[in-house]
């Protein structure tokens, strides 16, 4: 995979331990990565702690970056892994939320999320139970399979699926309520 010349320069500077390059790399990715961190946590301060830890790991392991993926994904992978480590370290258990048989509206996802600002969506994700939150992020946004998630979180694949299903249920209900409040209708 070819590396963007600017990224290459940044990487070389970071590998050489140049403070300016490190700061530039941080400036380039910190904002987006903070959102990633916030999706895995309940508060901004907690997310910032993870962000700091992740960037320290990034700068310490930048020597090992071979350009096999884009710099963005490499950085994001470290951020997500750091968030998951944080989740494990704090012994937050998966909330085994019962799979209630509440039906959610069969509307198109695009129409469901239309007009919703990502900050509102972020708040909804943060309101999910811990287990649901992690699995939802990993599956829906990061694109991992349930099998991969099961290995990462040391749970069964079935649990991953059911928790995702529950997360979706909760989110759709929450979105429905939000829309109902804003537009006076649940659809």
């Amino acid at each position: 995979m070819s590396v963007d010349p600017k990224e290459k320069e940044l990487l070389e500077g970071c590998k050489a331990g140049k403070p300016a390059a490190q700061k530039a790399l941080y400036t380039r990715f910190a904002g987006e990565m903070l959102v990633v961190c916030m999706r895995y946590t309940k508060s901004k301060s907690e997310a910032e702690d993870i962000l700091q830890e992740a960037f320290i790991r990034i700068f310490r392991s930048v020597e090992g970056f071979r350009g096999e993926s884009s710099l963005f994904f490499w950085v994001k992978r470290i951020v997500v892994n750091t968030a998951l480590n944080h989740y494990r370290k704090n012994k937050r258990h998966l909330y085994l939320v019962s799979d209630e048989s509440e039906e959610y509206e069969q509307v198109s996802p695009q129409s469901l999320l239309a007009d919703m600002h990502w900050k509102d969506l972020l708040l909804m994700i943060q309101e999910l139970p811990w287990g649901c939150q992690q699995i939802f992020n990993l599956y829906a946004i990061e694109g991992y399979t349930h099998k991969e998630i099961a290995e990462m979180l040391e749970i069964s694949e079935g649990t991953s699926k059911s928790q995702f299903s529950r997360a979706r249920q909760l989110l759709q209900a929450r979105i429905g309520k939000e829309k109902s409040r804003n537009y006076g209708t649940a659809g």
């Binding site: 910190a30 904002g31 987006e32 903070l34 959102v35 916030m38 999706r39 901004k44 910032e48 962000l51 999320l113 919703m116 990502w118 900050k119 969506l121 972020l122 946004i141």
Partner: peptide
């Protein structure tokens, strides 16, 4: 929905 989303630390 989260593409390009960014918050300044």
């Amino acid at each position: 929905a989260f593409e390009g989303a960014s918050i300044a630390p």
